[in-house]
């Protein structure tokens, strides 16, 4: 009995630790004026979100989070960083309209998310002994959300074609 409460409290602590990690990462991703810190903060935040998925009991979604957001998206952002200005130059000032627009966008998104969270009628999940997410997600992706799935792949295809065309044209123009 004692051990059960102990694990429960440790699970609670782990949860709040992960929340703290995510928020710290998010803060690092936004505030420092050093662009590599921003990316690493983003990595921290996304890894924290992955940890939250883990505490929700889905290994699959957690690892997918790491694989896609940390492994692919953040690395892609690193590629973009290579195009940024050298760090030893003076940091450009933050422009007020830009910051204001960013704040407005995030507030709108935050309010929308909170609204959805508040309006959802949450039911406690049934006790699950094993990881069910792989089969369930796979099943849902090709039945109920098949259209969404296809549309997303179409968007990705368009993006790929666009990238190839852009690269091809710019090369042809430069040579």
């Amino acid at each position: 009995m004692n051990i059960v409460t102990l694990t429960e409290t440790s699970a609670q602590m782990a949860f709040w630790f992960l929340v703290g990690l995510t928020l710290t990462g998010a803060a690092i991703a936004v505030f420092p004026r050093n662009i590599l810190y921003n990316v690493l903060g983003l990595v921290l935040a996304l890894a924290g979100v992955g940890g939250l998925y883990l505490s929700l009991g889905s290994l699959f979604v957690a690892f997918m989070q790491l694989l896609i957001y940390v492994g692919a998206i953040c690395i892609a952002i690193v590629f973009a960083i290579m195009l940024s200005r050298p760090l030893h130059l003076e940091v450009p000032r933050r422009e007020v309209p830009k910051v204001a627009m960013a704040v407005v966008a995030s507030v709108v998104f935050f309010v929308a998310t909170v609204g959805v969270v508040l309006r959802t009628n949450w039911v406690p999940a049934a006790e699950r002994s094993s990881d069910w997410s792989v089969e369930t997600i796979g099943y849902l992706l090709i039945t109920r959300y098949a259209l969404v799935f296809e549309v997303i792949s179409l968007v990705l295809l368009v993006a790929i074609i666009g990238a190839i065309l852009t690269a091809g044209f710019s090369r042809r123009l430069s040579s």
Binding site: L59, F63, L66, L67, G71, D131
Partner: peptide
């Protein structure tokens, strides 16, 4: 784990 391979690559 049921997603062991993913763990390593993640």
């Amino acid at each position: 784990m049921n997603v062991g391979i993913l763990l390593i690559f993640a």
